[in-house]
Amino acid sequence: MLTRRLSIATPIFLIIYVIQEAVISQFRLPGGGFSILVIFTLTWAVLSETEVAAVVGFAAGFLMDLSQTAAGPFGQWTLIMLLAGYAISYVGYGDDHVQGNAIGIIFFVVIANLLVEIAYVASGALLGVSSGSLIQILITLFGMSIWALLISPILLPIFSRLHAIIFDSRLSL
């Protein structure tokens, strides 16, 4: 059952990845912009069980590592997104206060997006990837969080509906 659902979800992830690389990347957005793949994966994770969340996090991270613009070593995004997916699902899944309302999910996604970026900078520093000055990092983190806050409410209904269709879930925000 899990394999069937994940195989249905795979093309959706690939489409989101193509949108990110071919469309979103065309715009040099102020404040660092946003990653639709990260927002999608985190939203998907909060709506899914821990097992599914870990697998989709791993898959999304793997795709992000495939991107030619990934600065760190291959596997860095995979590890971070895997842990983020698992953690967000572990905390959020099954909690009606989070899953039952859209604001709860948006809050979770925005915070998780910020933590993912901080984890990326911190692990990048350990692996020898330069990320710029502290001020520059802080500005980018702030900008990305604002973008996530603006974009998540627009995309959440679409993402939750897709999730509901694939997982036969009644939850559709």
Binding site: S25, G33, V38, Q68, A71, G72, Y120, V121, S131, T140
Partner: peptide, 9 residues
């Protein structure tokens, strides 16, 4: 394509 700043690069 312009690289995403998501990777701080």
């Amino acid at each position: 394509s312009h690289g995403s700043s998501q990777s701080f690069s």
